[in-house]
């Protein structure tokens, strides 16, 4: 049953992605990306990743749609009709995709419990017995039912600290980009205003 839902959602995702590619009205594109986020959140629930689904709904469908719409209000909503021939990009994409599909034949089948990915550290996380590095025989025990929270904050705290720092760095970056005057580039391309001093509006 879950395979059927999984397949249906994947099909809808593919259709939505194609719509995103084809549409030239950027507001519609951003809205489709919101729908795409909701669909992928539903897919994550089917794939048992409830925390990821929660995050995707709040972030992908909520905040990033708002930010994208805010950007469109500043830069305009029409995409120019592209005139270049699509042959070369299409060729690159087809070759890359073909090679990736060829590569998947070496991957283990989806959803099998004996896949290599389930063998390494995940059982220790699920049993909540992670051996401490250094001291022999000592284990780190945490009794929190939500394993994802435990792994996120305790076992892999370094990763999360790094990610939090990246989020902070992005804020610093955006603030740095938006600071200062909005000075359009002097239009030196046209000979009319060659003195160039009246460029700032």
């Amino acid at each position: 049953m879950e395979s059927v839902v999984d397949l249906a959602l994947l099909g809808l995702l593919a259709v939505t992605a194609f719509g995103v590619l084809r549409l030239r009205n950027l507001v519609a594109v951003v809205m489709l990306m919101g729908i795409y986020s909701f669909l992928s959140a539903a897919l994550f629930v089917v794939l048992d990743a409830v925390d990821v689904a929660f995050t995707e709904v709040a972030v992908g469908a909520g905040v990033s749609t708002i930010l994208a719409l805010g950007t469109l209000a500043l830069v305009g909503t029409r995409q120019k009709r592209h005139t270049k021939s699509p042959t070369i990009p299409l060729l690159i994409v087809l070759v890359t995709g073909g090679m990736l599909v060829y590569g998947t034949y070496d991957l283990p089948r989806w959803g099998q419990p004996d896949n290599p990915v389930h063998g390494h550290v995940a059982p220790e996380y699920l049993e909540m017995h992670v051996p401490l590095a250094g001291e022999e025989g000592e284990v780190l025990e945490v009794h929190i039912p939500n394993i994802v929270t435990t792994v996120l904050a305790s076992y892999r705290g370094y990763d999360t600290l790094g990610e939090t720092t990246v989020v902070f760095a992005a804020m610093v970056g955006v603030l740095t980009l938006f600071v200062g005057s909005r000075r359009p580039r002097r239009t030196r391309g046209s000979p009319a205003d060659d003195d160039g001093e009246d460029g700032a509006s």
Binding site: V142, A153, S154, T164, F168, V174
Partner: peptide
């Protein structure tokens, strides 16, 4: 461990809240 996780999650909450609202304001 419980206290540590609680504090760390509080740190994440505060950062993510601050960053998201700052981005929106910007």
């Amino acid at each position: 461990q419980h206290i540590g996780i609680l504090l760390v999650e509080a740190g994440v909450l505060v950062t993510v809240f601050g960053v998201m609202v700052t981005l929106f304001y910007s």
